[in-house]
């Protein structure tokens, strides 16, 4: 069988659908377990529902961009395997690079005319290259989080400050990098989203509390849309 025959075969779709169903089940287990735990810890149902609504709304747009990646990848590795890779583990840039690295190392000019074994090789290499993250996460997450939580729970004035430091440090690294990669348009998009989030926060604190839970989805959407204007003005 050829590369594309196998890539778009019923078996490939079936295996991917089974794997994704299991992974979806895992996410549901995590959701149920953590929601129950949050309630036990005294966080109200209303707050958790607010978190859910906000998360669902702001997840939609980035997920659509993942679907765009699906289009880009399906030409090279078929729809089924792209679907699997983008639903779990992967990002478009890594997946395309992994597929291209394999095809190039085998000196294949056109995957459409390649043998089925090339497709299986691509699948294996994409998987092997992405094994490190989930494997290390499985090994290290428990000791790291449990030890840090123990340190953070010590009854001293520094603990809450230390807990805030993690996110501050991550964002302090990411923001200058994103500003440098997005140019002036990227900077203006960031500023648009920041100013809008401050405005929404202000309005929410003046009695329109429900607006607060939609702060992030609104800023994400308006920020992205503003890129069209900024690109036209500055691009």
């Amino acid at each position: 069988m050829s590369y594309l025959d196998i890539a778009n075969s019923g078996l490939t779709y079936t295996l991917v659908a089974v794997a994704l169903s299991v992974m979806l089940g895992l996410c549901v287990v995590f959701y149920v377990k953590t929601r129950k735990r949050a309630l036990e810890l005294g966080i109200s149902k209303e707050v958790l529902n607010k978190v859910n609504r906000s998360t669902i709304l702001f997840t939609i747009v980035p997920s659509l961009t993942i679907v765009v990646g699906l289009f880009a990848m399906s030409a090279m590795i078929g729809t089924a395997w792209s679907w699997f890779r983008l639903s779990v583990v992967g990002s478009v840039s890594y997946e395309l690079m992994a597929a291209q690295t394999t095809v190039a190392s085998l000196d294949i000019a056109d995957t459409a005319t390649a043998d089925g074994s090339v497709f299986v090789a691509v699948m294996f290499v994409m998987s092997i290259g992405a094994l490190v993250g989930p494997t290390l996460s499985a090994i290290l997450t428990k000791p790291v989080t449990q030890n840090l939580q123990k340190a953070g729970a010590q009854n001293n004035g520094f603990s809450p400050i230390m807990n805030a430091c993690f996110m501050l440090a991550i964002m302090s690294v990411i923001i200058p990098i994103r500003v440098s990669t997005g140019g002036l348009v990227g900077l203006m998009v960031i500023l648009t989203a920041v100013l809008l989030s401050m405005l929404i926060d202000k309005i929410a604190s003046k009695g329109v509390a429900w607006l607060g839970q939609f702060n992030m989805p609104i800023c994400l959407l308006v920020g992205m849309l503003s890129s069209l204007v900024w690109a036209k003005l500055l691009g």
Partner: peptide, 27 residues
């Protein structure tokens, strides 16, 4: 706050629901 039992539960719940939505949208 992150790195607290409450932060862990709420943050993981949000990550789980976000993952569920992404898998559904991709499907």
């Amino acid at each position: 706050q992150p790195n607290t039992p409450e932060g862990d539960a709420v943050g993981t719940m949000a990550i789980a629901i976000s993952s569920i939505i992404t898998v559904i949208i991709c499907a």
